[in-house]
Design a protein around this nucleic acid. Structure first.
Lengths: 321, 321
DNA sequence: ATAAATTTTGTAAGCGATTACGAAAGTGGT
DNA sequence: ACCACTTTCGTAATCGCTTACAAAATTTAT
């Protein structure tokens, strides 16, 4: 097991025939380096596979850490956040940031200084979270949060298009699986708006609380149906709830999409069934977050961005018969 | 917003009237420091709230990072891992380790060097995981893994006692919610063994696969009952499955514990119901992991430890009527 | 061609810890 | 007292990188 020495900045400097200062300037994209030298240095960097040592950089007053704050509860809410986290990890890496995860657990490690922060699941009103946000202007939240930097999918728009899709397939009794919180509310609004625009009567008894998870969705749907509540289309505000609903319908000997059409939201992978759903381009959300983070670090005025969303029609919706 | 300078090792040295070398020796628990000086230094450290800067330590060739490897899938399997992770975070911190989380995602950040590694959800046969384990002798797995350092709860014992509890309450038709994998198998074995020891006949049709999650547990239990399969006791190999099962029984108009007694496993907090269950002392598991990690780092021969587990009787079990 | 202004590069001083080395202080035996 | 050990502690080099400053090279103006 040979142990080759990891190349340092001086190795690069020596091989490129320049000083360490110059190499550093190239690496940090500072101005005042002759294009030719820059090329030469980058070539050596490439050849050696040189990666600057984070500890040394930090010690000499250069941070590129960004903290990702996430409350433990958010993790278990949905696979969605896990995917987002992974995607964020990649995007940050591409932009030469180093991700540092920070769980908002009670007695955890104290916060290390970072250049910026990203907060997942901003709807949580964790006091620690609020404090961090107050102290650090360069913070980007995922979720709508006026007056700050935030990024959110186009929840109302997606919900609107999901509902519209069902309406255009001829459905008029369209149930909705909703849930508490910001996101749930916005998706509900999209649903409501679509009904209104297409003059389909809104019926409150067709809106259920599925708590963003499978079992509650299953139970509420099954119970409703058993109580005689009928619908030929169902728009669930998350894929997981759609999964629960479909299980319920299946257990009621209903066929999807022949008897009931189902639309989800998120487009999670590995769902085990080609679900018609509203696709969130998670990588684009992550990318946008990082873009805003850079703005935030450079002290630009805060703004929010809605990331577009897209209806993906698959096998769980059909024209009403 | 005043910005006080963070104290450095020289501040401590100056105030304690010693040299930086001595402070460093105290902090790293090296021998050759007079007890009195040690006290004096520690007092100053306390007073200033001094925390050594990780980057500087690392630069001067001292790592105390330990990587916690966890595949994203593990996270969503169960809140159990989230709790374990948090507890691990605390234990490591107490032992002056710095936790560095590493998600085993496809294109993630390359592994930074760490002193040791902890692997959560060892039953996963992730190739990347195996490679890491091979390269790093100082790795502790959570889960049984002969030939290595591992820590696991006493799954068979806990399952045994859970089943025994039901038997002693007079139940003889005891269903079991199991699941695939190492853990599921061990808990099943405990169940089986208890039946055998107490001469309660084992009936395969009373063993269901609940996939360690609520909805599958709900469906399999409900369907079984509707098909006429009867039992007065149920031992679920996880609290989450117990939750699903109880929801099913409730929807079948059965009362717990009057009609069916239910025992879970894990003792998760905030379950919304005082469930009789097998309590895993998660903090003790975490603590044990860190202890073994230190052994591993000092190149001791690998060994495994079973952490004891304890039956907690609450409101979901009662004597058979 | 020369001076001045500008661009590019090198030099070296930190950043905050660790640790090898040797000096100082303490111990004990004679 | 004096010498030989030990124990305890201070000094200073070192880790890899950034950056202020100065020096060198190049361009522009006269």
């Amino acid at each position: 097991m040979e142990q080759r020495r990891v190349p340092t900045i001086s190795d690069v400097a020596r091989l490129a025939g320049v000083s360490t200062g110059t190499v550093s300037r190239v690496l940090n994209r500072r101005s005042g380096v002759h294009p030719e030298t820059r090329e030469r240095v980058l070539a050596v960097v490439e050849r050696l596979g040189y990666v600057p040592m984070a500890a040394a950089r930090e010690l000499s007053g250069h941070t590129d850490k960004v903290g990702v704050l996430v409350s433990p509860r958010v993790w278990k809410y949905s696979p969605y956040f896990i995917l987002l986290y992974e995607s964020l990890s990649d995007s940050l890496w591409n932009e030469n940031f180093k991700l540092e995860e920070i769980l908002l657990n009670p007695a955890g490690q104290p916060m290390t200084e970072a250049e910026g922060y990203i907060v997942l699941g901003a709807h949580d009103h964790d006091p620690r979270l609020e404090q961090i946000v107050r102290q650090h202007p360069s913070t980007v939240l995922v979720g709508v949060q006026p007056g700050m930097f935030w990024v959110a999918p186009d929840d109302p728009g997606g919900a609107y298009r999901a509902t519209e899709h069902l309406i255009k397939l001829g459905h008029r009794e369209i149930a909705h699986l909703s849930a508490a919180g910001q996101v749930g509310r916005e998706r509900f609004e999209g649903y409501r708006q679509a009904l209104e625009d297409y003059q389909v009567p809104y019926r409150p008894e067709l809106v259920f609380d599925g708590a963003f998870s499978t079992l509650p969705a299953y139970r509420v749907v099954r119970r409703a149906w058993e109580q005689g509540i009928r619908f030929s289309g169902l728009f669930a505000a998350s894929d997981e709830m759609a999964l629960g609903a479909m299980a319920a319908l299946e257990d009621l000997n209903l066929r999807i999409p022949q008897d009931v059409s189902v639309v989800g939201f998120d487009d999670l992978p590995d769902l085990g069934r080609p679900l018609t759903t509203v696709r969130q381009e998670i990588s684009e959300i992550a990318h946008t977050v990082v873009r805003l983070l850079k703005e935030a670090i450079s002290r630009a005025p805060p703004r929010g961005v809605r990331v577009p969303v897209q209806l993906v029609v698959r096998d769980t919706t059909a024209r009403k018969r």
